[in-house]
Design a protein around this nucleic acid. Structure first.
Lengths: 192, 192
DNA sequence: TGGATGTTAGTTAGTATGAACTAACTTTGA
DNA sequence: TCAAAGTTAGTTCATACTAACTAACATCCA
């Protein structure tokens, strides 16, 4: 279980990455952000890697759950996919800093442990999306002339690039409402 | 114009980023890679940022040109897009290190100058792709029920994620041949 | 109940390492 | 012969992390 301070540190770390990139995530900056001295941080985390691991767990908790929960809802495949996308746009609108971390595998490229973790979350999400598409194809709700695998690359790729662009534009566009239009186009493409 | 040594340094820098991430790009590693001592590097580049700028120029030269050259070929829009994708897969298969740099905006997040540069290349490429799609829509060669803007997000996003995945899998899959199948599915989706 | 003991979360003052970069000198090749 | 390209030996600064200590609080038991 996490203490209040640990949660505070993780939140500050995510914000640091968001605003200054991974190179801005230093223990000094982190300590400053929560208003203590550097060594105090080490009372709450053994080392910096443990902080990054904790960030990844927040990521898993937020993003992966969006996928997992969708999987078992009793609605059509297309509705699942639409809802999935909307949930993502909502989450990132509420917590833009999270998006910076989620789609930046580069951040974790150094530590193999971290890279493994982020890759397993990613491929898990992809598998769920593919299953939903396959289910839709079986119901003749989604086009069958293209492999589910390729459709899931397409959906996930579009989602990621769209969010990355929103980030690079410093959130000037309305991700939720513009996203709705994009989702509309994507579902049209999925139809048989 | 660039000297032989400068080209050698840039190539080594791209390889370092590829293998060790941006944090692996140090003057020390760079010097070691080309077989000289650290200060010798400064005979060829004023500072580290100039090296990163030079890397971005290589990127512009390789990737942006793929887009620009495509624009004016006398073939159908769909053929242009197919060719565009194949060219990318070829380029990155030949020079995998380049892909690491091209799709990692994080690397340049610190220096606003560099971020500006990479963003202008990106949005330029997107604009060209959108124009090609619009041309195809005008010819009734590409579906008209979805805005060209959204189709270009889709294509570019799919391309990027597919290549990123290939990277994360350490190039174990055959990007060129697997890519061909993906392209086939994507062109099917674009049809009216 | 209140002193002894332990714990939590912080401090100041450091270490070791590695980064970018520089000054001053030497080698080398057209 | 002299400029280009290299060297050695440094500087300065930032980083992750540690040692030693302390104030405030919690717990235990005679």
């Amino acid at each position: 279980m996490q203490t209040e301070r640990q949660r505070e540190i993780i939140e500050a770390a995510i914000h640091l990455i968001h605003h200054k990139g991974i190179q801005g995530l230093t223990i000094k900056n982190l300590a400053q952000a929560i208003g203590v001295t550097e060594p105090a941080v080490y009372r709450h985390f053994e080392n910096k890697i443990q902080i990054l691991i904790a960030i990844l767990d927040v990521f898993r908790g937020n993003t992966a759950n969006i996928f997992e929960q969708e999987q078992f809802r009793q609605v059509s495949a297309l509705e699942k996919i639409t809802h999935l996308f909307n949930e993502h746009f909502s989450t990132f609108t509420t917590n833009p800093a999270l998006a910076s971390v989620v789609f930046s595998e580069e951040i974790f490229k150094n530590e193999p442990l971290l890279l493994d973790k982020i890759m397993s979350v990613m491929s898990g999400n992809m598998a769920i999306l593919r299953d939903i598409i396959q289910e839709g194809q079986a119901n003749e709700e989604i086009r069958n002339d293209v492999p589910a695998e390729h459709l899931s690359w397409m959906l996930m790729g579009t989602l990621r690039l769209y969010i990355k662009n929103w980030q690079l534009q410093q959130h000037t566009m309305n991700l939720k409402s513009e996203g709705k239009k994009l989702i509309h186009s994507l579902s049209r493409i999925l139809l048989p």
